[in-house]
Simulated scan of single mutants.
Amino acid sequence: MDNAIKIRRGGPTDLPAVLGILDSAVVWLNGKGITAQWGTDPFTTRPKTVEHVGQVMGEGDPWIAEVDGVPAGTLTLTPHPGMYVEPAREPERYVRYLATDGRFHGLGVGAALLAHAAEETRRAGVSLLRVDCFAGSEGRLVAYYERQGFTRTAPFTVGDWPGQVLEMRV
Rank of each mutant, 00 (worst) to 15 (best):
A72P: 07
G33N: 03
A25E: 02
G125H: 04
T45V: 14
A117G: 12
Y144V: 08
M57Q: 03
G102H: 00
A17C: 10
L19M: 13
G20N: 07
A117D: 09
D2K: 15
P12N: 07
E119V: 13
P71G: 11
R8F: 07
F156Y: 06
P47H: 04
E167D: 04
L77A: 06
P47Q: 06
D2Y: 15
L114T: 01
P91H: 02
G82E: 11
N30I: 08
R140A: 15
D132I: 07
T78V: 12
M1P: 13
R147S: 08
A4N: 12
H116N: 11
Q148K: 02
G102T: 07
T153G: 10
R46I: 15
G82T: 07
I7D: 06
L15S: 04
L19D: 11
A154W: 11
P62W: 04
E66C: 01
P79S: 14
G106F: 07
L107N: 07
T78D: 06
L113A: 06
D2G: 15
A124K: 05
G163M: 01
V26R: 12
A124S: 13
F134R: 02
L77I: 00
D68N: 11
F156N: 04
T153M: 10
G149V: 00
D160F: 14
W63I: 08
A115L: 02
L98K: 07
Y97V: 12
R89W: 12
I64D: 10
D132F: 01
G149C: 09
D132L: 06
V131E: 00
L98F: 03
V50A: 12
A36C: 10
E86W: 03
G102Y: 05
T45W: 10
G163W: 03
V109R: 01
F156T: 02
R9L: 15
P71H: 12
G108S: 13
Y144F: 15
L77N: 01
V126R: 10
G20V: 00
A17E: 09
Y144L: 12
A4Q: 13
P87A: 10
Q55K: 15
L107Q: 13
F104A: 00
D41G: 02
D160C: 14
G69A: 05
G149K: 09
R93M: 03
T78H: 12
G69R: 03
R140W: 13
A25R: 04
G11N: 11
R169P: 05
V158D: 09
Q55H: 11
A135C: 01
A124W: 01
V85A: 02
A17H: 06
T121Y: 05
G11S: 08
E119R: 15
D68E: 09
V26Q: 12
E92Y: 03
G33C: 09
D61F: 14
V85P: 02
Q164L: 09
T78A: 13
N30G: 11
L77R: 04
P87R: 10
W28Q: 04
N30P: 01
D132T: 09
N30F: 04
I7F: 01
G11R: 07
P16G: 03
A112W: 13
T76K: 05
A154Q: 14
R93H: 10
L141D: 00
R46N: 15
K48D: 14
M57T: 00
G139P: 08
C133K: 03
A65W: 06
T76N: 08
T45Y: 06
R147N: 02
R123G: 11
H105F: 10
V142F: 11
F43L: 01
I64G: 08
R96T: 14
K32H: 08
